[in-house]
């Protein structure tokens, strides 16, 4: 398997996304915003469509759209008086509808959208990998630097607000991180499954972790293993990589749930 360059690149990209997605997803899950990644993914679809229409690299337009969508969700949730789930629904449906309309306007309904919807990790090139690795490293560095304030908001948002912690700016930072993660993960698992890699490893880790930090570390480890195992299985069993990665993550959740139950948690 490793003698093929496309598999080495796929494993590299999968490893980066496998670690980054749960690291960012950790803060969304803890704040009961698990579906935010999904909402951003739908907006990213509109970005892909805009890229095809404008003849610009769809990954770039998806990144811009995802960042705008992530910030819009956060602003609607925190300032617009719109309930969190309604803010998400608004962005979800607007994103997907805009995507369909733009794709149609581009006369590109026959374009193979599957690679964006379900991932195309086996087509990752060297230059793609450099972009994924560089942005992934920046994303992980930001998570590392902002871990304490983000965890502090999870623990006690009102207390942090009273003490003068800039909650709004930190929430926007999480939304932007989630957007970058979605745009990077698009090649690995696709827009429709991107949120799974942000949520399932975290949910699995919560079942067996003993502290907040251990939850984050275990989630990143589970995400990494899911990516690498999923890709390996898909290579030998000739299965679609994105779906296989997410199924492995779902399996990890089931195993962790059983282990957690046995330990009497």
């Amino acid at each position: 398997m490793l003698e093929s360059e496309f598999m080495r690149l796929a494993l590299g990209a999968g490893a980066v996304v496998g670690v980054l997605a749960p690291a960012v997803g950790f803060f969304l899950v803890q704040r009961r915003q698990s579906l935010t990644g999904d909402g951003i993914g739908h907006v990213a679809f509109a970005g892909v469509a805009a890229g095809i229409l404008l003849d610009v690299a769809p990954v770039l337009t998806a990144l811009v759209a995802a960042i705008l969508g992530g910030i819009a969700i956060e602003l609607l949730r925190s300032r617009g008086g719109t309930a969190g789930d309604q803010a998400l629904a608004l962005v979800f449906y607007t994103g997907i509808a805009l995507g369909v309309v733009l794709i149609s306007a581009a006369g590109a309904l026959n374009v193979d959208l599957f690679q964006y919807l379900f991932g195309s990790i086996l087509t990752v090139t060297r230059s793609d990998f450099v972009v994924i690795a560089a942005l992934g490293a920046v994303g992980l560095a930001v998570v590392g630097l902002l871990y304490r304030p983000l965890a502090g908001i999870v623990i006690d948002e009102e207390g942090a607000r009273v003490a003068g912690v800039p909650i709004g700016a930190l929430n926007i930072a999480v939304a932007a991180l989630a957007a970058v993660t979605v745009a990077l993960s698009m090649r690995v698992v696709g827009i429709l499954l991107v949120a799974a890699l942000m949520v399932l490893p975290v949910s699995a880790a919560e079942r067996i972790a003993w502290s907040m930090r251990s939850t984050l570390a275990l989630a990143m480890a589970i995400g990494l293993c899911s990516s690498l195992v999923g890709l390996t299985v898909s290579y030998y069993a000739d299965l679609p990589p994105g779906g296989t990665i997410v199924l492995v993550a779902a399996g990890a959740y089931a195993v962790c749930s059983i282990v957690g139950s046995v330990r009497g948690r």
Binding site: V29, Q30, R31, E157, E206, S211, M212, T215
Partner: peptide, 13 residues
């Protein structure tokens, strides 16, 4: 006051 999230935050955290 109750803990946000489901991660098992310790007293020290």
């Amino acid at each position: 006051s109750e803990l946000g999230g489901d991660a098992p935050a310790t007293v020290r955290e």
